[in-house]
Nucleic acid binder design. Structure first.
Length: 482
DNA sequence: TTTTGAGTTGTTCGA
DNA sequence: GTCGAACAACTCAAA
């Protein structure tokens, strides 16, 4: 009888377009296993919102595997220990998995390879999480790209030739090792259950991912180029949490988008704009694969000297959406209430934390990590560094978002701000993004009492901007000395 | 090796 | 209200 293959599920919770699973199925019976590592020895523990998503995504994958006549084995602990045990328990002679790119992944995969060999088994990694492997995209001189545009152009010169692969026909062993009940993992919040309404907002799992993709490509992508910047409208794909957990592959997205370009040439440009966002995801993963310190250290070493301050009260006001800047507060409340924030607003709130509050980008990175359903080490750390000015191809430090101007430009009709900051809902458009400038009569009529039911701005924009620019000048002075 | 062109997402100021 | 220029040089990538 053929020995089974352990398929070690990681950030690839799907059945279709999964090269490792196809290869495993060709060898014989497959034992799918997912390991939750919350030991904090190597892997960064998941944030609260991500745990909620993971619960539902695992549930979805488990039931899909059961429909196929199999199951998903759930185990908790260190992957090294668990995979060693499973090899012994099941007599499996191979572990197959998708390659991952987190800072700790390379060491972990090396250790798994070693323990597999020690047990007389093989460990094989497969692509599937990215469109391009980090080694495959380099500059003419063989070094990794540090600027997005040439990076993405180099990617586009390498066409994706193979279409996504279908779900393989899976065979399973007769005897199954034990599995922990998902509910025992307590991934869902309780007392309070802050995610009570999330099931209405999100549909974790591959089915939900493909539904979201179809909806986006059929109804939204045409207006993506401009619409993506308007947080009060829905012209973004909302695919990020699905991609984060690998419920859908970037290649599946790529091919579906390619079909749209062929069938609706008028939308071709907008589709390319969308695909370049997939490109940013690739860029971030490649950067972290090359620079594993990204989540902790500034990519631009000069920023080690940047005079970040410690302002815990201001950071708390930012987290709670109580800064007194309506667009900032709207974003932070959307995040808290839904596990998501519109991309445009992510930039505004991040700029505000780093530049208006002069707080370290890691404060923001940590908060986003805990609150975002799509929290991903690579995208999160690269994007925060991008905003802070220390990242690859980063925004220049003197580019400081004006939260009033941004609100007036991108949330002109106030739909987004009024939704998340209802205490300002009755203010006229003219003052919605700067209530402190509204005459008393207007405030009273709208039921707004500044400093009472909505805060005064915690910093003055003009002053904060000047202070931030001075901090940057300080950085220049320090590095000039060095 | 040297040179050259270019670089996600902005703001402010002054004409 | 609208427009162009300045903002700060610097580093990257390719010719």
């Amino acid at each position: 009888m053929t020995a089974p293959t352990l398929y070690w599920y990681r950030h690839d919770l799907r059945l279709s377009d999964l090269p490792g699973l196809v290869a495993a199925s060709r060898r014989g019976p497959v034992l799918p296993v997912f390991i939750l590592d919350d030991t904090e020895t190597r892997e960064r523990p998941l944030g609260g919102a991500s745990r909620w998503w993971l619960h539902h995504s695992l549930q979805s994958l488990q039931s899909a595997l059961q429909d196929a006549g199999g199951d998903l084995i759930l185990r908790r602990g260190k992957p090294e220990a668990i995979l060693r045990t499973l090899l012994e328990e099941t007599g499996a002679d191979a572990i197959y998995a998708s390659r991952q790119y987190q800072p700790w992944s390379q060491d972990l995969e090396q250790d798994i390879k070693q323990l597999a060999e020690d047990a007389g088994a093989v460990f094989k990694r497969f692509p599937g999480t990215l469109l391009y492997e980090p080694e495959a995209v380099t500059t003419g001189s063989g070094t990794p790209f540090k600027v997005f545009t040439p990076f993405w152009r180099a990617c586009l010169r390498q066409p994706i030739e193979n279409p996504p692969v279908e779900q393989p026909k899976l065979g399973f062993p007769k005897v199954w090792p034990s599995s922990e009940p998902l509910d025992d993992w307590q991934l869902l919040p309780h007392s309070p259950n802050w995610a009570a309404s999330w099931s209405d907002l999100w549909n974790p799992g591959s089915n939900g991912a493909h539904t979201a993709l179809k909806l986006f490509l059929s109804e939204r992508v045409g207006r993506y180029a401009e619409g993506r910047d308007v947080p009060g409208e829905t012209f973004t794909s909302k695919l990020s949490p699905h991609l984060r957990f690998g419920e859908i592959s970037p290649r599946q997205i790529w091919w579906a988008a390619k079909t749209v370009k062929r069938d609706r040439p008028a939308d071709s440009e907008a589709v390319d704009k969308f695909l370049s966002e997939i490109g940013w995801r690739e860029f971030c993963h490649h950067l972290v694969a090359q620079f594993p310190q990204m989540p902790e250290q500034p990519f631009n070493a000069k920023f080690a000297h940047f005079p970040w301050g410690e302002y815990p009260e201001a950071v708390r006001a930012w987290q709670k959406g109580q800064t007194g800047y309506p667009i900032v507060d709207a974003g932070m409340r959307e995040l808290w209430q839904t596990g998501f924030m519109h991309n445009r607003v992510r930039m505004i709130v991040a700029s505000f934390l780093c530049k208006h509050l002069l707080s370290h980008w890691r404060e923001g990175e940590t908060w986003f990590w805990d609150c975002l359903l799509d929290a991903d080490i690579a995208a999160n750390s690269c994007s925060w560094q991008w905003v802070a000015g220390s990242g690859a191809d980063a925004a220049p430090y003197f580019r400081i978002f004006n939260p009033v101007a941004q609100g007036e430009k991108f949330d002109k009709d106030g739909r987004y701000t009024r939704r998340w900051v209802p205490e300002l809902a009755d203010l006229p458009d003219k003052y919605l993004h700067k209530p402190w400038e509204a005459p008393d009569l207007v405030l009273t009529a709208a039921g707004v009492r500044l400093g009472d039911n909505y805060p005064q701005p915690i910093v003055d924009h003009k002053t904060a901007r000047e202070t931030a620019l001075a901090a940057y000048a300080h950085l220049k002075a320090v590095t000039a000395e060095a």
